[in-house]
Structures are given as structure tokens and as C-alpha cells.
Nucleic acid binder design. Structure first.
Lengths: 346, 346
DNA sequence: TTGAAAGCGCTAACAA
DNA sequence: TTGTTAGCGCTTTCAA
């Protein structure tokens, strides 16, 4: 506040030009005599000078910050990705500015605009499906952009995805190996990448085992991910109840994400179902508490940490080297199936 | 990128001065004739002009961004606070820049520095206990600062706290009402505000019921909150096991936070304990999944959303009105005891 | 009601 | 090896 120390003060005290101070502070781009460096450093120390990032940004046109739009950071999967992304960016001296879209296209657009206004050096987001115009424009402007979890038809942007299909297939095959023949699927909407690919993985597993697929065993949520809409909170509960109330109910369930799974857990408690005796359960997204609760839950562990790191890598690569007409990269983060009591028993 | 549209272009096209464009864009501080406004707006529209936030910040010395340092955003309690804070700031047209300290004083300091360099308009953090010098300096510089969850001796900064004492007392009284006489406490380190106050609330409840307090029933973690140190992940498990292995074990446990609680849940599963028959359980921090799992968990619900909102309020108040020598505000966020199966049974 | 112009603190091109 | 200086895009004082 009071009387900010600027580079001029340092230059004066050290008896050099402001340019020299700049070269010392930034370690370049041109060399400075050792002796002079000394003097400047001392002056900086004595005055308690700190460079002003805003002024620097104005001339370099870089802010060393990344805008990150997440549908809902309350979803533990997004939290973990945010954490990993933030850490990786931090290591590269970038900071993370957060925006919640709540799966609301207007909010998403508002975030995009706000980020541009603030001059972020890149944007990462889980696109809600709208705002195609803005996203194409953003991509065409050459600004670093990374899509998470969902691809956008025709938009050749870098993208990080889960092994949706392979992970789901592995989990369902595991259920099949345990002897299950009627396996229900509580799925995300198949309109977006994760729902579509997880459904395909489920079908793959059935087909590979020579099981006929009964469409009546698939239930699909109408919800796309974020927000705290209470009606949707336990959507998984409704869908699972629906399935279990059939005259010929499944003996096992694969649940496509952690939000749906919460609803299913809720239902288990309400009905006092024994797991895996009455119903075996496997799910996508491995939450930390799945290994603490009773029964512990078999889950496809998607390495959220690596996911976040890859997003950072793509972003930094683009910032430092530009896209250079390179083909867009689509990275799949590997998975691991964590088998626990909800399928294997105690 | 290519040929950015600046205010000069707009001024030229509209046939006015750059100052006028500025007044139109900012709606002030001086009036502009309706007719002129029209012209300027049209020019802006036609050129697709967008103000440059960085340049504006350089002159206004405001960035409309807040730096937020959290020990570990993976802790769902912090996530929820972050979300609420971010939303409230967003509504006021501020953005949130995130830093994870991991309870590491060096990282905390690095965040503080980075934030200053980036010119944030205010800082909110859960202080780790170190960096006293930097925090006092920050506060004295007059920059908006809000402390979360932990007070710092002698630092008269605005602060938002939980009703640690009252909430814990209510939960323990609930256990006493259910007939429990030997109630264990798995606590956070009493060196910091939450641990100290929760312990006091526990003692309050015992005293009010005329129960003698047995120090052997209190176990205290050594951990201060963040990070993913695997050894600490299930600290609650060790502490609880220790307590239950006594010849005269408690019949109920109050667990001071969600991280410790995860360890306790893990232990329940390992030992096949029936809750609440073998052991009744109540905890501080109400996680969403506590109402979905079996048994559902009785918890002190601390309204994380309101917590985040209060942080935002304090911050914005300080930014807009300055502290003006006002007394520092210490806000306590109310709680609610959510009674569920882990104490009351099914 | 409006224009001209002086900076905000910094980087880097141009000179020396 | 170092100094001088022209901006970066914007806000706002001073004049008109």
C-alpha cells in the first residue's frame, strides 16, 4: 500500500538502469556482470522490492495462471483432479483460478469470458455440451485449451479421458467370473462420452462372455454431473430400486459413477440388502471411503491424480511450444480394478 | 492473439476520445451523453472489443481476485468451503485462485508470496501455525485477510470459526442421554483451535451431566489436517483401536473430524463391530455420504456453505470498506446435530 | 459534455 | 556490459 517500492528505486539505489534491474530479476535475457548483479540484489534486499506481476503481465501478455472450469468441485472425482492439476501447475509456477459451471451453459460461458478478461494463459474444462461457438472460437484463437472427460464432436482440441470402456469391461468381467449372469447397469446419460463408453464396456464384457444382453437391465440417469439439485442427489437410488423391483432382478450391479453410487448405497441401507450375498456391486470412480465402509466397495480406480497431471502437461506443453499445427492429443488415463467386499465378499 | 482490439480502435471508430470509451465501458465515473454512449457501444460491438483486465488492474491496483490457501482441498470439508466461497465471490465478480499448503509452512509462505506477486485483492487461509511473521506483516499492510478455522494468538484478523465447543457438547450430551457413561474422544491435536475447543465441549458435556472425566478415554492425533501422508491416513483407526483394547473400553466414541472418522469406520469393518450396539459413534463434520452408508452416521453438521459465505462476506467487506480500525470480527458458524443410526440405531 | 495526456510498473528493442 | 526509452492497455486528472 503505502509507497510501493518500484524498480526505479532499486535502480537508483544500485546505481544502474532499470533495464539492468530487470535482467537481474529475470535472470536474463541478457547477461549482467557479476558485480552489478551483487549490487542490484543488495538494493532489492535492502528496499524489500518485489516485482509487480500485473505490470509484468501487461507487457509479456502472460499471467502465469490457468482457468479451470469444473462442473462441480464437490464431486470428489473433480476435487482430486483439481488438486493434482493445481499441484502440477504450481510446480511450473502457474496458479489455478477456479470456476464452477454447475453444468449450466451460461455459467460456463461466463467463466470463459471472465477468464479471457483476466488474461489466463490457458483454459481447462469439462465441457457441459453447450457453448460450442465459444469453445471453437477459443480453440481457433490458438489459446491453450484442454478438454476433460468429454470430447466435443469436430473440435480438435487436446483432451484427457478415462479408460471408460476398458475399465467398465474389466469390472463387469469380474462380476461374470464370480458367476453373475444378470448384471444391471446404472449408467450416466449415454449422450456424453463417459456414459457412452461405459455402456459400451458393459456390452463388451457381456458379449465376450457370450451372454445375451437384456436392455431391460440398463437404467440411464438424466443428469450430466454437477450441481446440488436435491432431486438428482439420489438418482441412483431410484434407478436401482426400479431395477431390483423387476420380477427377474439382477444379481449384480455396475454403477457408472460415484454420484449414482451414493444413491445405490442409500438404497441398500433402506432395504437392508446384504452385499454381495443379495446383490454384488461394482462401480466406476474409486472414492477414498470405499475402502473404509462396510462393505468395502469394488471400484474402477481411474487414477485421478494422473488425470490431473496429464491435463497440466498438455496445458504447459501448449503454452510453451504452441500447438504448431500438431495433431490434437487424446490421452487415456489407465485404470485399475480394486476388488473389495462388495463383489468378493469378506 | 492476432491484432488485439484496443480502446483506441473503439475511440477512433466512434469518433470520441479514449477517455469517453472508458467512461462508457465502466459506466462512470463521469456521465456520457446518451447519444455518444450509443455510438461507443456500437463501435464496441462492431469491433468485438473486450477490455483488458490486466491493463486495468495495473492502473486500478485491483485484480478482482482472491487468493485462497487451503491445507488440502481433498478434505471434503475444505472442498465444500471452497465451493461456497468461490460461489459467493463469483457473485461479486471476484475470482478465486487456489493454493494447497499441505500444512507445510514453506508451501504456505510460497503461496502467500505468489499471491502478493499476482496482486490479489485479499487472502483467505487456514493457517498452519507457522509463518507468523508473514501473516502479521500481511495483516499490518492493511490487505484484506481472513483466517479460517484457526485463530492466531495476538493477530487481530477477521476470522471464521466453527461452533466447535457447542457442537461437540451437543453431540456428547446426546450420547449421554442415550445412557452412555464411558465415552471416548478421538481428538485433533489440542494445540490448534478446533482440537482445543472440541475437547472443551466434550468436557463440558461430561461435567454438565456430573460424569467424572477419565483422561484415559481421550486420544489425540498428531496430525494437523492436510496432505496424503499414508501413515496418517488411518490415524483414527489406530487411536480407536487403542481405546477399544483397554480392559474397560468406552461404549461410545466422539470423533473430532472426518479424517479421523474414516479410520474409525475402517476399524469397524475390520473388527466387524456392530454400531451402535457394540459401540455408538458420533462425529464432527457431516460428510454427505454419512447418510448413505450403513449404518448412517450421527454428525455435527457445521454448515460448510455458510462458513464459506461468511469468509466471502468478511473479505468483500474489507475490500470495499477497509478495516477502518474496526475491531476484528470473529464469526462462529452455527451447527446442527444430525442424529442417525450410529447412535440411535435403526 | 468531452478531449489530451500523464502515468500504473514493467520488458525489451535500440543504442552506446 | 550497460543505459535510454518506447510502449503494453487502461484510468483519470486537468483543461476546454
Amino acid at each position: 500500500m503505502a509507497g510501493k517500492v518500484t524498480r526505479d528505486d532499486v535502480a537508483r539505489l544500485a546505481g544502474v538502469s532499470t533495464a539492468t534491474v530487470s535482467y537481474v530479476v529475470n535472470n536474463g535475457p541478457r547477461p549482467v556482470a557479476r558485480r552489478t548483479q551483487q549490487n542490484v540484489r543488495e538494493a532489492i534486499e535492502k528496499l524489500g522490492y518485489e516485482p509487480d506481476g500485473v505490470a509484468r503481465s501487461l507487457v509479456t501478455r502472460r499471467t502465469r495462471s490457468i482457468g479451470f472450469i469444473v462442473p462441480d468441485i464437490l464431486n470428489p472425482a473433480h476435487t482430486a483432479i483439481t488438486r493434482a492439476l493445481g499441484d502440477a501447475l504450481w510446480d511450473a509456477d502457474y496458479s489455478l483460478t477456479l470456476g464452477n459451471s454447475d453444468e449450466n451453459p451460461e455459467r460456463e460461458l461466463a467463466c470463459l469470458r471472465a477468464f479471457r478478461g483476466r488474461g489466463v494463459d490457458g483454459v481447462a474444462l469439462t465441457p457441459g455440451g453447450g457453448n460450442l461457438g465459444a469453445l471453437f472460437a477459443l480453440h481457433e484463437s490458438g489459446r491453450p485449451l484442454v478438454l476433460l472427460d468429454r470430447q466435443i464432436e469436430g473440435l480438435p482440441a487436446n483432451c484427457v479421458l478415462f479408460e471408460n470402456r476398458g475399465g467398465t469391461r474389466a469390472a463387469v468381467e469380474h462380476l461374470i467370473e464370480l458367476g453373475h449372469r444378470r448384471i444391471g447397469l446404472i449408467n450416466l446419460p449415454a449422450a456424453l462420452t463417459p456414459g457412452r463408453e461405459r455402456r459400451d464396456g458393459y456390452l463388451d464384457a457381456l458379449a465376450a462372455a457370450g451372454l445375451r444382453h437384456d436392455p431391460a437391465l440398463i437404467r440411464e440417469g438424466g443428469f450430466k454431473g454437477g450441481g446440488d439439485n436435491p432431486g438428482r442427489r439420489l438418482e441412483g437410488r431410484l434407478l436401482a430400486a426400479d431395477l431390483l423391483d423387476r420380477r427377474d432382478p439382477p444379481t449384480a450391479l455396475f454403477v457408472s459413477n460415484n454420484r449414482l453410487m451414493r444413491g445405490v448405497l442409500h438404497l441398500l441401507r433402506e432395504r437392508g440388502l446384504r452385499v454381495p450375498a443379495d446383490l454384488a456391486l461394482a462401480t466406476f470412480d474409486d472414492m477414498e471411503y470405499y475402502e473404509d465402509i462396510t462393505p468395502s466397495i469394488t471400484a474402477v480406480d481411474t487414477s485421478l491424480q494422473e488425470f490431473g497431471q496429464q491435463v497440466a502437461r498438455l496445458l504447459l506443453e501448449q503454452i510453451e511450444q504452441g500447438q504448431n499445427g500438431r495433431e490434437p492429443r487424446v490421452i487415456r488415463v489407465p485404470f485399475r480394478l480394486n476388488i473389495r467386499e462388495s463383489t468378493r465378499g469378506t
